[in-house]
């Protein structure tokens, strides 16, 4: 039940810094800092002439807990799709740091991806996020801390979820969450790990990605499911997905599979009709090209 927050550890390892694991004796070389998560820093490292991601934790127990989850997931993946490589410790200035090594995924976070590739990717990226959630749910885990920063989108809208700090076995209390994506924060349900919890966060993610909801100027009076739905209804990009968002926010999908089916159904709905109904004056000159883009999107969607 902890909240995600940015770490305050300021030590940054520089390029070329060499790390040898205390237990497994593997050698890694730091390339650069990739990012800073809730519970530590992630670096790009070289190992055996390949690049990998290394997460160095701030807190031993939460890092190990993350490793435990990743290893459990890893066991269920196909041999060529394994994500976990190694976990170990190293010493620096008398202090011991624990880390783990994972497959490195190149891509942008969901918001950056849509900003640079266009909003027309939104539906496909959404579907791919739901696919990833469904896979995780089938393993009896709930992602927990689903948010824009934790969704990495690679070419053709391929989605990878990163940061497993919030991953919780079904039925337990959500391990880690970010308030704005939290069902409890919106007074719309519990903090128990069930499939609908992730689907709720996914709906919030959609609202933020389309610009229907902005993180700033949120006051407690606005905290309700009906406020969220109102925001969705006033946004042209959300329009087609309203039936989905309504169920997702109210927790009425019986499973992630159902949610995914509904999303898909709406996604392939009458695209032309919908693009015409976006009534924004600045869009009119661009309408012809947007129809073209839509056709391309649908084409892509069928392939991947």
């Amino acid at each position: 039940m902890t909240t995600s927050y940015k770490s305050t550890n300021t030590t940054v390892l520089h390029e070329g810094f060499k790390i040898q694991g205390k237990w497994n004796k593997k050698n890694y070389e730091i390339q650069r800092l990739l990012g800073e998560g809730t519970s530590g820093k992630v670096y790009l490292v070289n190992y055996n002439q390949n690049v990998f991601a290394m997460k160095i934790g701030l807190d031993e127990i939460s890092l190990q807990s993350e490793i435990n989850v990743i290893k459990k997931i890893n066991k269920k993946l196909e041999p060529d799709k394994k994500i976990f490589i190694d976990s170990d410790d190293f010493e620096l200035n008398g202090k011991i740091y624990s880390f783990y090594i994972m497959k490195y995924i190149q891509g942008l976070d969901a918001k950056l991806f849509l900003n640079s590739n266009g909003q027309q990717w939104f539906h496909l990226v959404g579907l791919n996020i739901l696919n990833q959630l469904q896979k995780l749910h089938q393993m009896n885990f709930i992602f927990g801390d689903l948010k824009i920063e934790n969704v990495i989108v690679s070419e053709f809208g391929k989605v990878t979820l990163i940061d497993y700090g919030g991953v919780t076995p079904k039925g337990r209390s959500i391990k880690q969450f970010t308030e704005i994506y939290d069902r409890g924060y919106w007074i719309n349900g519990t903090r128990k790990a069930d499939e609908a919890y992730d689907i709720f966060s996914f709906a919030i993610l959609c609202l933020i990605l389309t610009g229907a909801l902005s993180i700033s100027n949120l006051t407690s009076e606005k905290r309700s499911g009906s406020y969220l739905l109102k925001r969705a209804k006033t946004n042209p990009h959300c329009k087609r997905m309203i039936p989905f968002l309504e169920k997702a926010l109210n927790g009425t999908f019986s499973s992630t599979r159902c949610a995914r089916e509904e999303w898909k159904k709406l996604m392939y709905g009458n695209g032309f009709e919908n693009s015409n109904s976006i009534e924004l004056p600045w869009l009119k000159p661009a309408l012809a090209s947007s129809i073209f883009v839509l056709v391309v999107t649908v084409y892509f969607s069928f392939i991947y």
């Binding site: 127990i61 190990q64 490793i67 435990n68 170990d88 209390s173």
Partner: peptide, 22 residues
């Protein structure tokens, strides 16, 4: 302390810690 344990042992200990916490 936890860091004195081999990563494999640590895995089991942390599972137990989480059970207790929950």
């Amino acid at each position: 302390s936890l860091e004195d344990l081999h990563p494999n042992q640590r895995e089991k200990v942390v599972d137990v810690i989480e059970d207790l916490e929950e």
